[in-house]
Design a protein around this nucleic acid. Sequence first.
DNA 1: GTATTTGCAAAGGGTTTGCAGTTCC
DNA 2: GGAACTGCAAACCCTTTGCAAATAC
Lengths: 169, 169
Amino acid sequence: MRAAPETSALPRRPDERPRRDPLAALGAFLQQKGLKHSRQRQAIAQIFFDMGGHVPVDALVARVREQDPRVSVATVYRTMKLLAECGLAVPRRFGEGQTRYEPADHHHGDAHDHLICTACGAIVEFESERITALQRRLARRHGFEVERRRVELYGRCAGCRGAAAKEPA
Amino acid sequence: MRAAPETSALPRRPDERPRRDPLAALGAFLQQKGLKHSRQRQAIAQIFFDMGGHVPVDALVARVREQDPRVSVATVYRTMKLLAECGLAVPRRFGEGQTRYEPADHHHGDAHDHLICTACGAIVEFESERITALQRRLARRHGFEVERRRVELYGRCAGCRGAAAKEPA
DNA sequence: GTATTTGCAAAGGGTTTGCAGTTCC
DNA sequence: GGAACTGCAAACCCTTTGCAAATAC
């Protein structure tokens, strides 16, 4: 799982949340690992966090290239892998064959689930402690200790259901 | 027009359920659609249903080739697509980059979820009406009408947790 | 007969990698 | 200065497709 800040030892001051500034966190990670803080990494991370949501890699590449056309796909993939490694981004795959990345500090726990509209592709996040608790309990009953969950509900969003009703195909 | 009366030349399905004969169903589907009941289709379907569980395509190809080495991957893919189309198999993707197929009549509703062991790869199915009901309700609250679900819980199975405890890596 | 299937091999999409040159510390 | 990083292109994995030959009905 992701490296959450250790709340046990040091109580965080409200105005100094590490996960509030992902770029700073990335910088710290790089430094600590002896990696380099390159122009491309900076740009990719910056744009990624600016975009927010669930970003497909190709969309990120496009955006980055608006700013610096010579950035390669390889570098974007490598950088996103890095962000995932240090817990700042989470890779998602919604069955479209492509990987999307989601900022990890988006929600507190990243235990949220996704609703995906099969008509317009909209992605909505939701979270339910009850569901996760039930799942954990059921998993335990089968001898499993849950480390990671993936819950995706596919269907039609309100808008698309409305559109279908008005204008039946 | 039953397919091979002795589908169980290998009588080893301990959890055999009262299920209709999928091969017969396939035959009916083919006939109805004016498609042909080829030797390869027969073999692929037969072996697939004999294997049971969640079969990766390459494993299926390997098994089929033990029996007829000249069957092509393309044919296996095409056949599995056909089985999916007529509702006898369900494609699954557990984030390993490869597609697995699961017999569709395995459970009544195919609304079951999966527990996947991150250590040994074991896959266990479970089902919970409460969870699906909760999910449906929550989705509704966000305006969604759920059509299809995908729930995968990754973790360590009992056996692997035991092994890890004995011999910590 | 003839429409459907097959095997092969090549194409395809998304992602990764090897390598020579560039950049950062 | 030297390790780390980049861009490029080729490689990669899994899956699909085009096509001529083979097959089922």
